[in-house]
Design a protein around this nucleic acid. Structure first.
Lengths: 241, 241
DNA sequence: CGTAATCTTGACCAACGTCAATGTTCGTGG
DNA sequence: CCACGAACATTGACGTTGGTCAAGATTACG
């Protein structure tokens, strides 16, 4: 069976059609505000236009697990559209701008523009690949590798969006966030980052990430980069501004 | 914004339409055979009709991470359809029967039957919720809780398919599989199961799982059951046999 | 009925977590 | 521009969880 390229649809146009049909307005939030609250009975759909957000869950024991970092171009809230509420919260990490979409139009749009459904599905699959990788990371790799890979993946996702060039770039993340993302304690994140710095693999000081050699860090982390990390963000800056 | 029920489409019929349009043939595999090999340049789409399979990744360091257990009704191989190959392998755990689907028909089907796209998307979202939960489990919960929740989730998924009734049921899983699923060593899985048995929460002996009280185990595991675990499998036994 | 997996247990060890003390950064108001 | 306090970062000492190793018991299978 042949690989189905997206030429099967005129997919290049999918994002614009999507945004043109569904975009309702803008919202701006300051750092710390919620985009989505876990278990709230509202269904809302957004595209992150600018800034950083985190998607996370609070466990009954008080711990927090970061499920993903939300970057410009990412779609937020699909699960609340399908299920009426969301298992996770999404919170702004920096000042953030969002496109507010009208989810009630989704069924109509899918009917009239199958290419949008295709693009959505592909986006979900890519995200699942990243989830698979994170799972393997937490299940089977040590602290240094976890941090190393996380930094690598973030770098790639930022690069794909033109938000990271060369060896260094800004990451608005503190230790607690990194710890809750990779399943370590804050203190141990420190130790891991010290180890990476000592080996010249990665350095994160004053919110500036430096990775001298992607190749070296990738080899060390014991993981090939997922194509999903590299995949172009859909729906980003597809709308007129 | 209101919760969009699937009545927006006549979604009940989606599975039948899907299978009727795409089903090509059957395959039967014995335990241990591959359904999908990681990184093979083939794109294949299946529905598991009968038996158990695992979806997993082998890491460069030799470790294995189980990404998911594949149960009857689950769709396998979508990512190879979109990307031409798969990051993971899928291997039969028991003798298995699969429906072989013709993925090249997917674009057409999505165009002509938008309800199928909707159902697909919803299925992906549900699976992502389960992935989120597993991530939180590995990142933030201890050994006993991980095993406890895994058993609970399997029980629920089996029940939704009519493959588990009452307090006990068969699980064709060995220690190594459980260990690689929850990120523990084989030996420590033992210790966790002993702890669960000692508390009367769960027992897995001779491939028979017994959970006296779902409520107690759920409380202990520190996790509410995901609705996704309970969600009815789509595409199962929707085709004439 | 015998051989090879797999399961189970105990002893020991390494990785990671916790706690507490000290340094550093950053935002705020004077 | 400086002083202050509140987060946040960093370090070391120590505790706990889970990993490793090795041996014996049990089960599966030819």
């Amino acid at each position: 069976m042949a690989h189905l390229s997206e030429r099967a649809f005129r997919a290049l146009a999918a994002e614009e059609k999507f945004l043109a049909a569904m975009k309702r307005s803008h919202v701006a939030l300051v750092a710390g505000e919620f985009v989505i609250k876990a278990n709230a009975r509202i269904s809302a759909l957004y595209t992150l236009y600018e800034g950083w957000a985190v998607r996370y869950q609070l466990l009954p024991n008080g711990a927090r697990q970061i499920l993903d970092f939300v970057l410009p171009g990412d779609l937020v809230g699909l699960s609340s559209v399908f299920f009426g509420s969301s298992r996770y919260s999404v919170q702004a990490l920096t000042p953030v701008t969002l496109y507010v979409l009208d989810a009630t139009l989704l069924p109509t749009l899918l009917r009239e523009e199958p290419s949008v459904g295709w693009a959505f599905l592909k986006g979900r699959i890519a995200e699942q690949e990243r989830a698979d990788t994170r799972l393997a990371l937490l299940g089977r790799l040590g602290a240094n590798e976890r941090i190393g890979y996380l930094l690598l993946e973030l770098r790639e996702r930022l690069r794909a969006r033109g938000l990271f060039r060369g060896q260094s770039g800004a990451l608005p993340l503190d230790r607690a966030l990194l710890a809750d993302a990779v399943g370590l304690s804050r203190v141990h994140v420190l130790r891991a980052m010290r180890a990476l710095r000592a080996r010249g693999l990665a350095d994160l000081t004053n919110r500036i990430l430096t990775i001298p050699s992607v190749r070296n860090l990738a080899r060390f982390s014991g993981f090939p980069l997922t194509r999903a990390a590299r995949a172009q963000a859909i729906l980003w800056r597809g709308g007129a501004e």
